[in-house]
């Protein structure tokens, strides 16, 4: 029962990595329960909800954790309370609410029976943190109806008094939740070998040892057999249109304007088609079975990407037409 990583992946190759961010500004509808809490925050008030067993739960949950009943009875609580649990974050990350060392705490607000989880700021001093200590809310200046209207908690046994007071007429029903995660993508072995060839202006497909099918681009395996594509087969930059669509939606940042043709292209020497752009042809003249050739970017612009080929265009000479 032992296996070395990479034993079946064939040749070694220079690692290709590229950073990207997975991010979106999510817009969340809050529903009435979360919305009521966020509306209260915006007014500088803390509110909880009464659980099926009578406990006051802060922040309010929509459904009772034991009976699953929908909870609806709101109870006002204080913006001061007691720390019942905490941990110390010595090295905050960019995702954390404070940039200097701080504590996360579970704080039981006065009037509540269960704690709220939030940051506690002791100005970077871990020695101030104690279970049982009294803290109060530090409110944000411009409340928005978001959990971040509570900047954090801070030591103190009475309310700061700096409570935002606004007269909003409409309750909070939406909140923005921008979410950004950083990744460093590393291409697999098969992909990296393929991209190294594309970097040199060559379309080099791959096949499994003993397999009959050449894959462009390769993704690591012959998917039909589940065997690694360790052998390389150079293909032409001439292809046949297997099928296509005329797209009427723009590509952000691409100079090609709609309507443009996206085609499934089978490169000469390959057994599986890939998707790429067709251009320098009347869209109405594109046909299944049409023969096309790659139009490469200038060599100095080549990178590790299929868009080294700007697009494909029909083969010029009459004798080249007609397909394979």
């Amino acid at each position: 029962m032992s296996l070395e990583n990479g034993s079946a992946t064939g040749q070694q190759v220079e690692v290709l990595s590229q950073k990207f961010t997975l991010g979106f500004t999510y817009t969340r509808s809050t529903g009435p329960i979360v919305g009521r809490f966020l509306s209260s925050l915006r007014d500088g008030k803390m509110v909880g909800v009464k659980g099926s067993d009578g406990r006051v739960i802060v922040p309010p949950v929509e459904y009772d954790p034991v009976t699953a009943e929908a909870l609806i009875e709101f109870v006002d609580v204080a913006d001061t309370g007691e720390v019942v649990n905490w941990c110390w974050v010595a090295k905050p990350t960019e995702h954390h609410p404070l940039s200097h060392p701080f504590a996360w705490g579970m704080i039981k607000l006065d009037g509540a029976d269960t704690p709220i989880l939030h940051a506690i700021d002791t100005q970077g001093d871990a020695s101030q943190m104690k279970t049982g200590m009294k803290v109060r809310v530090r409110w944000i200046d411009q409340a928005q109806g978001n959990i971040k209207d509570i900047v954090c908690f801070e030591p103190g046994d009475s309310s700061s008094g700096n409570i935002p007071r606004h007269d909003f007429e409409e309750p909070v029903v939406m909140m923005d939740a921008p979410t950004y995660l950083d990744y460093n993508y590393t291409a697999g072995n098969a992909t990296a070998r393929y991209l190294h060839q594309i970097r040199k202006g060559k379309i080099v497909g791959q096949k499994a040892p003993g397999g009959e099918f050449v894959y462009v681009p390769p993704r690591g395996s012959c998917p039909a057999t589940g065997v690694a594509t360790t052998e390389e087969v150079e293909c032409a930059d001439v292809a046949t249109v297997e099928s296509f669509t005329i797209v009427h939606i723009p590509i952000p940042g691409n100079p090609i304007k709609p309507p443009y043709v996206v085609a499934n292209l089978l490169a000469d020497g390959a057994d599986v088609s890939f998707i790429h752009l067709l251009s320098e042809v009347d869209n109405d003249a594109v046909e299944i079975g049409m023969r096309v050739k790659a139009v490469w970017k200038p060599e100095e612009e080549w990178g590790y990407a299929m868009d080294n080929i700007r697009f494909w265009k029909p083969l010029d000479t009459e004798s080249d037409k007609g397909g394979q």
Binding site: L16, Q18, K19, F20, Y185, S243, T245, I249, H276, D307
Partner: peptide
């Protein structure tokens, strides 16, 4: 995603050529 052409064709762009065929 890195190293992949992003043609913004979406699901419709994927299925339209199959429909054409």
């Amino acid at each position: 995603q890195p190293f992949s052409p992003h043609l913004n064709a979406g699901a419709g762009g994927y299925f339209a050529p199959i429909i054409r065929e």
